[in-house]
């Protein structure tokens, strides 16, 4: 028996909206500790990793670990039927479920929707991601980072991110010209302006902006984003989800051949 009830169902809707352009089908692994999901994009350039802790759910029960293979496209069709204020419950009684039940309830419990989504059997190609001590960590407004990526992607497809003790520089070079945006440490009490840099070792890495713009669809999940980098390592972009868990994106760098 598996049942997970999320009080703020809108969070689940936002998560699916944030990943639906990146991955087509995913395995959600349910265990006693909560839900986790890991999937690569079709080109194997990016990887998304979701972890939702059981104590972030209104009700959570998972008698034994199960894997739920979902088509993101079909999942988002069903989630379109959930109101932003609804609670969302996932449920199945079977051990090897062929479908997953969804219940959407409005606040007054006066409207209850029930859907059943057919499940897929997907080979789980999960990667072992070691807990990395990143040498450069940037915490900043997710809206601001999203804006920087959008603006720079009109000049070039790739951005070079260079960190130093007191600032991070986003540089682009394209046919029309070049540009850079430098953001300094800023302990402002305004969220949108605050920038925390923890730079143990400076890094200089290059990434495809197309992927960063896809990751930034997760801005609605958290007002802050963290960029985690080490030389010759994928960038890890993390959106923490209050009281529930985190959505992480990993992006492989581009290297000059």
């Amino acid at each position: 028996m598996f049942e997970a009830k999320l009080q703020q169902g809108v969070i689940f809707k936002k998560i699916v909206d944030a990943i639906k352009d990146l991955v087509k089908s995913v395995n959600i692994d349910a265990s006693t500790s909560g839900l986790s999901m890991q999937a690569m994009d079709s080109a194997h350039v990016a990887l998304v990793s979701l972890k939702l802790n059981e104590n972030g759910f209104k009700d959570y029960r998972c008698d034994r670990p199960i894997t739920l293979g979902l088509s993101i496209e079909n999942l988002s069709k069903i989630l379109k039927c959930a109101g932003n204020d609804d609670t969302i419950t996932l449920q199945t009684d079977e051990e090897e479920p062929s479908s997953l039940k969804f219940f959407f309830e409005n606040q007054q419990a006066s409207k209850i929707s029930e859907f059943s989504l057919n499940l897929m059997s997907l080979d789980s190609e999960s990667l072992g991601i070691p807990d990395t001590d990143y040498s450069s960590v940037i915490q900043m407004s997710s809206a601001e980072f999203s804006r920087i990526c959008k603006e720079l992607s009109s000049i070039s497809e790739t951005v070079e991110i260079e960190t130093s003790k007191e600032s991070v520089k986003f540089s682009v070079q394209g046919d029309i010209g070049a540009g850079s945006i430098t953001v300094k440490n800023n302990q402002s009490d305004k969220d949108v302006d605050r920038v925390d840099l923890q730079i143990d070792q400076p890094v200089k890495l290059t990434f495809a902006l197309r992927y960063l713009n896809m990751f930034n669809k997760a801005v609605s999940l958290s007002s802050t984003v963290s960029l985690n980098m080490s030389e010759e390592n994928p960038l890890m972009v993390e959106y923490k989800i209050d009281d529930l868990g985190s959505l992480r994106f990993y992006l492989a760098p581009k290297i000059s051949d």
């Binding site: 080109a43 194997h44 350039v45 990016a46 999960s126 990667l127 495809a208 492989a252 760098p253 000059s256």
Partner: peptide
């Protein structure tokens, strides 16, 4: 120019 590396070049399949 730069060439794009793959994520599974950095993390090993479980």
């Amino acid at each position: 120019s730069q060439c794009q590396t793959c994520i599974d070049g950095y993390y090993l399949l479980n």
